[in-house]
Design a protein around this nucleic acid. Structure first.
Length: 425
RNA sequence: GGAGGGGUGGCAGAACGGCUAUUGCACCGGUCUUGAAAACCGGCGUCCGAAAGGACUUGUGGGUUCGAAUCCCACCCCCUCCGCCA
């Protein structure tokens, strides 16, 4: 959520930043909010004066009664003031609601370093490894998966519909091993605390991180209990500290969590329907950081490097993109996408999105810290990134390490855990 | 699911219709001190306001009242016991 004070003090700056992100219509919320804000403050000023009057009168009533006098006349007049106050209070809450409903649906402002434009303006800022070109006809992962008995898409579809893959045998084990190995990497080498979190969350939690109220159609809802399936572990992990005031010594906080992720992919019907490229349920290991504001820029670089280290250790070629303003997620201030090369489908696949949110989520979720003893509380900065998302990682792994005979040779780091060096039919 | 108890500031914990939340701990500033500790003084939630000042804040939302932490209603959460259960 944007700070109303910022809109008030520098409306041109906010208008301009929102314009870069979503055009003139989006920039228009600034003036709408400011109009409500002005009405709101006028009503508060008026109501506060009447409340002061009422408090004074009530105090007097108490004194008169204690002295054994008759306060009827004063009570009657004060009752009328009470009605005026109620009317003004209604106006305050109406404008309040109008403002928060506008702001809850307004995305974060892009960082100045973010390139302007849509997807086509994303910048490749670095790459690692050489994209593999096999000297034989490379198979896509769904064929490899089927031949090697790792993947059973038809049965997944039978159970739950398309987009719900079944992994089996070595495939299931490989995925479990990758999760385990990544968690170990982040806890032992990167200083993260491992969390195991709920996969169903309240509406409030989704509002806290920014998925709601705007993207309701993207989430699954268990209506009977009004609980939502998480689209990412970011939601429960970030909300871990919702409505908390952290001490000066508490930051930074670094958490890693495995979770399944549930996404309706409502806007992507018909896109990437084959194999594991886009599914409704997938596994992911997530990194989440709570940082002091002055640390958040460096923290994003660190977090991105930590996600990259997974691909490096697996020997998979990837590139890092800085997303353009129009391609940023709702809550993000700046995002690096990691795209891994998949030689079977001959595409770069997004396996990680590392973002800083500034104080945007902290404001929505009310996560504050005390900068130093005695100082006023301030909002923390939150960051997160996938490290990594499993399906596309599996895709890149299988397609990259496939052999001419259809088998797959596993990278060294996984062999012991999987219990074999080669996946064969 | 049933019965009972309870949610008050960063933490602990009083007040149970009116003098507008007593107090302790922690933390910050000051005085004192060579320095520290102790002691003492002040501060330590949000909003409106340029300021003076004012308003709000006792889980959340309603209601009663001139006035609600306190009374009433609904909901949420925590604890204890019972039932069910991986």
């Amino acid at each position: 959520m944007l700070d109303v004070k910022l809109l008030r003090s520098d409306p041109d700056f906010v208008r301009d930043a929102l314009h870069r992100r979503g055009g003139a219509e989006l920039a228009g919320v600034v003036d709408q909010v400011l109009a409500h804000d002005e009405r709101r403050r006028a009503a508060i000023t008026e109501a506060d004066a009447l409340k002061a009057e009422r408090n004074e009168a009530s105090r007097t009533v108490g004194e008169i009664k204690r002295a054994g006098g008759d306060a009827e006349e004063l009570i009657r007049r004060t009752r009328a003031v009470g009605e005026q106050i109620a009317e003004l209070d209604r106006r305050v809450s109406a404008t309040d609601e109008a403002i928060s409903s506008l702001l809850l649906s307004t995305p974060n402002l892009p960082d100045p370093a973010v390139p302007q434009g849509g997807e086509e303006a994303n910048q490749v800022i670095r790459s690692w490894g050489d994209p593999v070109r096999h000297p034989f006809p490379a198979l896509p992962h769904w064929e490899l998966g089927e031949r090697l008995g790792l993947l059973d898409l038809p049965r997944g579809a039978k159970i739950s519909g398309s987009g719900f893959p079944v992994l089996r045998g070595r495939g299931a084990r490989l995925q479990r091993v990758l999760i385990d190995w990544m968690l170990d990497l982040h806890t032992t080498e990167h200083g993260y605390e491992e969390l195991r979190v709920p996969y169903l969350v309240t509406r409030e939690s989704l509002v806290g991180t920014g998925q709601l109220p705007k993207f309701e159609e993207e989430s699954y809802l268990a209506e009977r209990d009004d609980l939502w399936l998480i689209p990412t572990a970011e939601v429960p992990v970030t909300n871990l500290h919702r409505d908390e005031l952290l001490g000066p010594e508490d930051l930074p906080l670094r958490y890693t969590a495995y979770s399944p992720c549930f996404r309706r992919e409502a806007g992507a019907a018909g896109k990437d329907t084959r194999g594991l490229l886009r599914v409704h349920q997938f596994d992911k290991v997530e990194l989440v950081r709570f940082e002091r504001p002055e640390r958040s820029a460096d923290a994003l670089e660190e977090l991105t490097a930590e996600a990259e280290s997974v691909l490096q250790k697996l020997g998979l070629a990837y590139r890092v993109l800085r997303l353009a303003s129009g391609d940023l997620g709702f809550s993000a201030r700046m995002t690096y996408d990691l795209e891994v090369w998949a030689p079977g489908v001959e595409r770069w696949l997004e396996v990680s999105s590392c973002s800083t949110f500034g104080d945007f989520q902290a404001r929505r979720a009310n996560i504050r810290f005390r900068p130093a003893g005695g100082e006023k509380p301030a909002f923390v900065h939150t960051l997160n990134g996938s490290a990594l998302a499993l399906p596309r990682l599996m895709v890149a792994l299988l397609e990259t390490y496939q052999e001419a005979d259809g088998s797959v040779t596993l990278p060294e780091v996984l062999r012991e855990r999987v219990g074999t060096a080669r996946l064969e039919p």
